[in-house]
Design a protein around this nucleic acid. Structure first.
Lengths: 158, 158
DNA sequence: AAAAATACGTCAGCTATGTTGACTTATTTC
DNA sequence: GAAATAAGTCAACATAGCTGACGTATTTTT
């Protein structure tokens, strides 16, 4: 008869999650817009930057979108010299993806904005909060995907 | 010269936020799809349910979309009897929005799914974590909008 | 060496959800 | 009575997702 059982509604967190994510993703929009890009471009650029030399098919797995959806934005990013492609050394069918200098620089601007928002929030909270937050977000991911995400995030780039 | 300054990149949280939010919003998709609805319908239904008698213009403010975007999904929700409209008692220009019984029931199903995910995550974490998480999400919201969101969430419906 | 599988790209067309700007109707306020 | 407001609607458009089919280069399997 415990009220806080696993079904009890969490309207507060549901709504906070909605508003928080909206503002979090809203930060980069201004910069993206100036270049005629959208959030789809941001995601592609981000994950290529974080996984240099990633294969197209692995990027599709991460983003969980179709080849066509990716193709459209990837083409623009390559055409405008934010991303470059290199044939794989072992398997020349592959087009391994890398950010160009321009792409890397732009990517840094975008993650700086998002990191500032995160760091500002964390700085107003008790010590150790970032570990709690990280744990919460991790546990919100589908159980089957967690280890994959952990592997992905494990790559420290700073 | 502190490394953890307000600009230092938080790739881990940026990516966790992305994956967590995707899976969090993914839960209701199956049920929505069965009725031919999408996430836009979910958001409208949710905020009408949580704010019975809300005016159309206030709903627009919450969702930050245009009248046309809202109109499209709202019309479907009204046509299929998930939401009903009543002229305002004081100002008959208003069409105050309410969920029907059918709408309320469906809404409960959707938030149950999301609450389960949240409660499962929280249950695996130290005591007091939900307060930390709530605080974090709140602080991720644009400073200007926080009080408005706080007011909105303050309405306890359970 | 031929056949099958794989990695990637591309074509056509569709859907959902957002946008702008202009206009109408009913109602309330000045 | 005139102006402002709440809401609905029309046309047209953009972004970003989708499906299914097909082409090409390359690697793997038989």
């Amino acid at each position: 008869m415990n009220k806080k059982d696993s079904d009890s509604p969490r309207f507060d967190l549901i709504e906070l999650f909605f508003f928080a994510y909206r503002d979090f993703t809203g930060d980069p929009d201004v910069l993206l817009d100036e270049l005629g890009f959208g959030r789809a471009h941001h995601r592609v650029l981000h994950f290529v930057h974080r996984n240099p030399g990633i294969r197209v098919s692995d990027l599709l797995d991460i983003l969980k979108i179709t080849k066509q959806s990716l193709g459209r934005v990837l083409k623009q990013l390559v055409d405008e010299d934010f991303i470059c492609q290199e044939p794989g050394a072992l398997d020349r069918r592959q087009r391994l993806l890398y950010t160009t200098e321009k792409g890397t620089e732009f990517c840094a601007q975008l993650s700086k904005l998002q990191s500032q928002r995160i760091n500002k929030a964390i700085s107003l909270m008790p010590d150790g909060s970032d570990e709690i937050v990280r744990q919460f977000l991790y546990l919100m991911i589908d159980e089957n995907d967690r280890s994959e995400v952990a592997r992905l995030i494990g790559k420290q780039t700073d």
